[in-house]
């Protein structure tokens, strides 16, 4: 299943080849490779624990202390950035929304955004306030006291504030109520009109709505790359590669399960900030 014609002609914005990562004694990635097209959304898929977050963190030079890239290359817009320090990779024009959102709970919403302002570039507050009118109203509120969904908005706003060449978003809908999931998906759709997005996502409805290309990992390797819609239409493949049965179950019971989780996150963040 190759990439359909027309998607592969321009140079990819991100190109990962045979990426290998070890954390401590365990080999976590053993050959991850894929391209992110210079427009639209590329979904990075796979079951829990297959190495999606590790891939993203390796690209950004954000592996934990005991982790290291043991092989492979990462190219951003053609330039080799393998093993470069995080801030230098990011300054080349990468926005990043981490899995746990990475919002600074002790800072206000406005301070979270100010911190994200990168030197030398325009800062698109007009866009951010248009996408997230609520953040404008809550600019003086401590981010740790925001709801999980609002915190996700702060994290997305930080990534969209600068002129980026690529935005990487790791499971933005995790733990959010269905209504908020829809809001996040809408924001990502609008974002993808301006900047290519690499999206790690387990909610297949969101993937279906946003992604043009799909990359599937399993046990630290790329096992599939191709057109997202084609993959999702292939029931057998989605079941074997993504374990869809399990996912749909959690989607159905979503709302009841997720509310307490959101509350806990908020409490946790508040505690951290005192």
């Amino acid at each position: 299943m190759s990439t359909p014609a027309g998607h592969e002609s321009p140079q990819p914005i991100l190109s990962v080849r045979d990426l290998r990562v070890r954390i401590g004694q365990s080999s976590i990635l053993q050959g991850v490779g894929f391209d992110v097209a210079p427009t639209g959304t590329t979904a990075l898929l796979g079951r829990n624990g297959v190495g999606k977050t590790t891939t993203v963190r390796a690209v950004l030079g954000l592996l934990p202390e005991e982790g290291e890239v043991t092989g492979g290359t990462v190219r951003l817009d053609g330039e080799d950035v393998t093993g470069h320090r995080t801030h230098t990779v990011v300054r080349r024009g990468v926005g990043y929304v981490p899995e746990d959102r990475g919002v600074f709970g002790s800072l206000t919403v406005a301070e979270n955004l100010t911190l994200a302002e990168r030197a030398g570039g325009p800062h698109h507050y007009d866009l951010v306030h248009d996408l997230f009118p609520e953040l404008k109203a809550r600019r003086a509120q401590r981010a740790g006291t925001l709801s999980g969904g609002q915190q996700q908005m702060v994290a997305l706003a930080r990534a969209l504030l600068n002129d980026n060449r690529l935005v990487i978003v790791d499971e933005p809908t995790k733990g959010l109520a269905p209504r908020v999931v829809t809001e996040v998906a809408e924001v990502l759709q609008r974002a993808a009109e301006r900047v290519p997005v690499l999206l790690v996502e387990q909610n297949l409805a969101v993937v279906r709505r946003l992604a043009r290309d799909a990359v599937v990992l399993d046990a630290g390797r790329t096992v599939h790359t191709g057109d997202a819609a084609e993959l999702l239409a292939d029931r057998e493949r989605t079941t074997s590669l993504l374990g869809v049965g399990r996912h749909e179950r959690s989607e159905r019971s979503g709302q009841a399960e997720e509310r307490p989780e959101e509350r806990e996150q908020r409490e946790h963040a508040t505690k951290e900030s005192t």
Binding site: L60, L62, R85, T86, H87, V90, R91, Y96, P98, G102, F104, G105, S106, L107, E111, T114, L115, A116, R118, R158, N162, E272, S273
Partner: peptide, 24 residues
């Protein structure tokens, strides 16, 4: 100050500060 902001954020989550493009 901006450095003060970086310090306060860094106390909370150093890695995330670098992920915003800041040389911590």
């Amino acid at each position: 100050t901006r450095y003060g902001l970086i310090v306060r954020a860094g106390v909370e989550d150093r890695a995330m500060v670098t992920a915003l493009g800041i040389d911590v």
